[in-house]
Design a protein around this nucleic acid. Structure first.
Length: 451
RNA sequence: GCCCCCAUGGUCUAGCGGUUAGGACGCCUGCCUUUCACGCAGGAGAUCACCGGUUCGAAUCCGGUUGGGGGUACCA
């Protein structure tokens, strides 16, 4: 089996494209678990023939996104722009066999033709000496194919235009270039977005003209934003690098995107790439479009964060934040974050000093005996020896005991004194990690500030 | 307009002729508890878009309607 992912570098890789890439990857990789017993080949092709919109930066962004998602390819990247000679060669072939012809007809001519013949009628042109190249579409019959996901799809030939396959200068158009490249790459299974369904009969017609058998086709449902409309910038993180910047792990993105459009099991949804490949069945991909829901991605991301383990998570967080020496801070906070972005706001106080939250200070320290509790806590912590999590805990719990109060009455003032806010990792762990000197200094500063 | 695709709680899905329509996210309640989370235990939420047909029996099969989406370029 040979599959391909053929993005156009006209922008960043969006999650819809990422999912197409993922499904192709899963299909190829999953062959190893099927009757073939060995993985298929994934070819990466960059369809950069749109000179105005394609840029090298976009190409690099796409490759970068695929690498980040761990979706490696086996061949390529092949650049479509470098294959124009071959495109012209095949074009000459269909011209010579009479399956295609030159025509000077333009959009207006096509429109006029339809007004005359009815809009369900495909345009039929007359052969001329020059002009764009159009494929001769038969009036009779149907072009039919079996979509792996959707079943049989049929188009009446009469309703298909004699479509343009090349400009007057001989440069070919998308439907044609795309087909020729798939052919030369020996692609056996074309897995692409639903927006290509209406291209399929056209490519099938070209294939007929060439006398070559068609590959299998599978058209994936599209992805939408929360408002049910096509995904775009206004929906927040729509591109892969935006998801990365938002603190999502590639494992979670792969996992979530795989789920968007297919059920992999009746009762479990937490899967890594390899397990997804093992379970992936193209024919079971759902037919209806899915809405991208960042809340579920967040949930999976949280699970993956906890799955990684402290050492690996530390590596990711050090790269993400650009700070070093984070291991201990990760250890006491990993259970509390859903995305990498949430890490620093939670533990930054350990490195950069307490945050400034006057409301928390006022509420927790300056009222209900907060100052007294804080003083007592300070004295107890001054005596804790050695300054371990266990000893910090028993010291603070003794204060609670002595004063006959609720734990939070003591813990919260300490928390606000060292972190500046009411939200932080566990208080004993935080205090122990900060160390005695720094903890006492911060408590003193808070007491001073409270007057 | 024309061609094509699609339709299960708010969202993603399981289901493939007989189920109290299952799970996940989110939401609500309780437990845990040191804040926030995690975890655990419960709960609310679906006339399976609508109308016909086939059948003893339909979310499941067929037709139509409505709604949504894609295409309709000498873009990709």
């Amino acid at each position: 089996m040979r599959v391909r992912f053929a993005p156009s570098p006209t922008g960043a890789l969006h999650i819809g494209g990422a999912r197409t890439a993922l499904y192709n990857w899963l299909l190829a990789r999953g062959q190893a678990y099927g009757p073939e017993g060995k993985p298929g080949t994934l070819v990466l092709r960059i369809e950069d023939t749109d000179r105005e919109r394609s840029t090298p930066e976009n190409v690099e962004q796409i490759l970068d996104a695929l690498r980040w998602l761990n979706l490696g390819w086996d061949e390529g990247p092949v650049f479509q722009s470098e294959r124009s000679e071959r495109h012209r060669e095949v074009l000459a072939q269909v011209l010579e066999s009479g399956h295609a012809y030159h025509s000077a007809a333009n959009a207006e001519d096509v429109q006029a033709y339809k007004e005359r013949h009815g809009f369900e009628r495909g345009f039929r042109g007359r052969e001329e000496d020059a002009g764009a190249v159009r494929l001769r579409v038969p009036d009779e019959g149907e072009t039919i194919f079996d979509d792996v996901i959707r079943g049989q799809i049929r188009f009446a030939n009469a309703s298909i235009d004699d479509f343009v396959i090349a400009r007057a200068d001989g440069s070919v158009l998308y439907v044609f270039a795309n087909l020729v490249d798939d052919l030369d790459a020996g692609i056996t299974d074309v897995v692409r977005g639903e927006d290509h369904i209406s291209n399929t009969p056209k490519q099938l017609l070209v294939l007929d003209a060439l006398g070559i058998a068609a590959p299998r086709y599978a058209h994936l449902p599209l992805l939408y934003g929360p408002d049910g409309r096509k995904l775009s910038k206004r929906h927040g993180a729509a591109s892969v690098q935006e998801l990365r910047a938002a603190g999502y792990l590639p494992e979670a993105v792969d996992n979530y995107i795989a789920l968007l459009g297919a059920g992999f099991a009746a009762d479990e949804e937490f899967f890594g790439l390899e397990e997804l490949a093992r379970r992936f069945r193209l024919e079971r991909v759902s037919k209806n479009p899915a809405v991208f829901d960042e809340r579920k991605l967040r949930h999976l991301n949280g699970r993956w964060i906890r799955e990684l383990g402290t050492d690996e998570l530390t590596r990711r967080l050090e790269e993400f934040t650009g700070r070093a020496g984070l291991h201990d801070a990760v250890g006491i906070s990993e259970e509390k974050i859903q995305t990498l972005t949430e890490f620093w706001p939670l533990v930054g106080f350990l490195f950069d000093g307490p945050a400034n939250d006057p409301r928390a200070f006022q509420k927790v320290i300056c009222s209900n005996g907060g100052v007294e509790c804080l003083k007592a806590a300070r004295d107890a912590l001054a005596r804790a020896e050695p300054f371990t999590v266990e000893n910090v805990e028993s010291a603070l719990r003794e204060v609670v005991e002595d004063r006959g109060t609720k734990p939070a009455k003591v813990f919260q003032p300490v928390r606000v004194a060292i972190a500046g806010t009411t939200v932080s990792p566990g208080i004993f762990e935080s205090v122990a990690l900060l160390g005695r000197a720094e903890t006492l200094a911060r408590i003193d500063r808070a007491l001073e500030h409270a007057g």
